Simulated assay, not measured.
Amino acid sequence: MPAILLAGPTAEPLTLAEAKTYLRVDHEAEDGLIAALVTAARATVEALTRRVLIDQSWRIVRDAWPASGLIAVPVNPLKAITAARVIDADGGETALPLGAFTTDTARLPGLIRVARGTVPEPGRPLAGIALDITAGHGASADHVPSPLIEAVRVVLAHFYEHRDVAGPGAAFPARLDALVAPFRVTRL
Rank of each mutant, 00 (worst) to 15 (best):
S68P: 01
E93W: 06
A36L: 11
V154E: 03
G69S: 05
R124G: 08
V73E: 06
H137L: 06
S146C: 04
A174Q: 09
R163H: 14
L53Q: 01
L16H: 06
A40G: 10
L131S: 03
I81M: 03
N76W: 11
G110F: 14
E150A: 11
G167R: 00
E28F: 14
L37G: 06
A141I: 01
L6A: 13
A80V: 04
R59Q: 12
T103L: 04
P2V: 08
E12D: 15
P9K: 01
T102M: 06
L48H: 12
T102R: 08
L53S: 02
G117C: 08
A181V: 10
D132E: 13
V25L: 10
H27V: 04
F183V: 07
T39L: 09
L96G: 06
A181H: 13
A166V: 13
T134H: 05
R59F: 15
S68F: 13
R50S: 14
V180E: 07
T39K: 07
L37T: 12
T49P: 02
E93F: 10
A95D: 11
A64R: 05
E30N: 07
G91K: 03
S57R: 09
A89Y: 12
A130E: 13
S57C: 01
R62F: 15
A40K: 06
P109S: 04
V114H: 02
I133M: 03
P120W: 04
A11E: 15
T10H: 15
I81W: 09
L98P: 01
E161P: 05
A17W: 11
T49C: 07
A106W: 14
R62H: 10
P9C: 05
V165N: 07
A181S: 14
G91L: 00
G32I: 01
P125Q: 02
D164Y: 15
G92L: 00
E30L: 05
R175Q: 14
V185A: 12
R85I: 02
P97T: 13
R153Q: 14
G136Y: 15
P173T: 14
A181M: 07
L16C: 09
R85C: 09
F172G: 08
L126Q: 05
T94E: 12
V154D: 00
E18M: 13
A7H: 11
A29K: 05
V75Q: 05
L5D: 07
D88W: 05
A64F: 15
V114P: 08
G138L: 10
E28Q: 07
A178V: 05
E150Q: 09
P77V: 09
L131W: 05
